[in-house]
Computed example of a mutant assay.
Amino acid sequence: MAFHNRLTSIERARVTITKLTCPITRNALRAIPLTDFIFGVYVSRRYRYVYIDNPKTGCTSLKSAMAELELRGSESNLDPLNPEVIHYDASPLKSFAPIFPNPTLSSLAAQGYRFVTFVRNPYQRLLSCYLNKFDSNATMDNPQARRMPHGTAPGDFLEFIEAVVGQTDQEMDPHWRSQTINIHFGRITYTHIGRFENYALDYKATFEKLGIPHTDIPQLRHLNKTKAGRSRLREFYDEKSQEAVYARYRDDFSNFGYSYELPD
């Protein structure tokens, strides 16, 4: 069942009960909108795990592989390379919203479901977001532009940084929201938190931690790539923007062990 910004009375009641019974959801909804929370949860009933989405960390490739694995052996004609199957309600990992009376995140954890996610150096993640969502996306109907302070796309990267560091987590789009908030860090006990910087190895490790036999792990396909490599960071960041990003995303740098210095 899809939840939208304008909830029915029944949906509001379901959310209220969920917040009363699920500490993870209750704390998450203090910081982010309900629709973002639901969108970021992917549940495999077949393999009993939960993937918490953290955009711009290789999630497209990972969710495609997870969909492929979930569909394997079924009679479904869904294509795991189709964006609707990767990201949206057509995904086999989106069979329900984690809102009462469906299993909530707290109840799934209590049932022994394993939780996994990925993180990325905040400097690189923001640059990847800008290049993918704004520099290469000049369409009039850009959903990420609507989440900018004035509802319009930034003119350049420095304007993008200046705009987003002034937003609250509630106002931010998940693509540039704090990763600490996106993955509910400290509220969920993770089986594995992969790192984008070590993607090929951590991609494999993610499935191994979930108990998937080596021979069953889907082939890694690098989807939705941007040219936000380490060598390009100094082309975009100046001292002021670097300091601003570090200050706004300090929790991410601290929680995931990233340095103030731009990666070499």
Rank of each mutant, 00 (worst) to 15 (best):
residue 82 N to T: 03
residue 111 Q to N: 09
residue 80 P to S: 01
residue 120 R to V: 13
residue 87 H to A: 03
residue 114 R to Y: 01
residue 71 L to P: 15
residue 109 A to W: 00
residue 81 L to P: 03
residue 102 N to L: 04
residue 100 F to W: 14
residue 71 L to W: 09
residue 85 V to W: 07
residue 93 L to M: 14
residue 88 Y to Q: 10
residue 71 L to F: 14
residue 117 T to H: 10
residue 107 S to P: 11
residue 108 L to G: 13
residue 106 S to I: 03
residue 83 P to A: 02
residue 78 L to T: 01
residue 96 F to A: 12
residue 92 P to S: 10
residue 83 P to N: 02
residue 95 S to P: 01
residue 84 E to W: 13
residue 75 E to T: 14
residue 119 V to T: 09
residue 70 E to I: 03
residue 99 I to P: 08
residue 87 H to E: 09
residue 103 P to K: 01
residue 94 K to M: 08
residue 81 L to C: 06
residue 86 I to G: 00
residue 109 A to G: 04
residue 75 E to P: 01
residue 115 F to S: 12
residue 79 D to V: 04
residue 74 S to H: 00
residue 89 D to R: 11
residue 103 P to S: 09
residue 112 G to W: 06
residue 85 V to S: 08
residue 84 E to A: 15
residue 101 P to K: 05
residue 101 P to W: 08
residue 93 L to A: 07
residue 86 I to F: 02
residue 75 E to G: 15
residue 105 L to H: 13
residue 108 L to Y: 06
residue 113 Y to G: 10
residue 97 A to G: 05
residue 106 S to K: 11
residue 101 P to D: 11
residue 96 F to Y: 15
residue 118 F to I: 12
residue 92 P to Y: 02
residue 109 A to V: 01
residue 106 S to V: 00
residue 109 A to P: 02
residue 112 G to C: 08
residue 113 Y to I: 12
residue 89 D to L: 09
residue 118 F to Y: 14
residue 89 D to E: 14
residue 78 L to A: 14
residue 99 I to Q: 02
residue 73 G to P: 10
residue 94 K to G: 01
residue 122 P to Y: 03
residue 117 T to G: 05
residue 82 N to G: 01
residue 94 K to H: 13
residue 121 N to W: 10
residue 79 D to L: 00
residue 119 V to I: 14
residue 90 A to I: 04
residue 122 P to M: 05
residue 119 V to Y: 06
residue 110 A to K: 14
residue 72 R to M: 05
residue 74 S to E: 02
residue 103 P to C: 05
residue 122 P to E: 00
residue 106 S to W: 14
residue 119 V to R: 06
residue 122 P to C: 06
residue 116 V to E: 04
residue 100 F to C: 08
residue 79 D to M: 06
residue 116 V to F: 08
residue 86 I to E: 00
residue 84 E to P: 08
residue 76 S to L: 03
residue 112 G to Y: 02
residue 112 G to P: 11
residue 88 Y to A: 11
residue 93 L to F: 07
residue 113 Y to R: 10
residue 78 L to N: 08
residue 121 N to G: 15
residue 83 P to S: 03
residue 87 H to K: 13
residue 99 I to E: 02
residue 88 Y to P: 01
residue 86 I to V: 12
residue 73 G to Q: 04
residue 91 S to A: 07
residue 113 Y to M: 08
residue 89 D to A: 09
residue 96 F to G: 10
residue 77 N to E: 12
residue 109 A to Y: 00
residue 98 P to S: 08
residue 106 S to R: 11
residue 80 P to N: 07
residue 99 I to N: 01
residue 122 P to D: 08
residue 109 A to H: 05
residue 75 E to C: 02
residue 103 P to E: 09
residue 94 K to D: 11
residue 71 L to E: 13
residue 89 D to F: 04
residue 95 S to R: 15
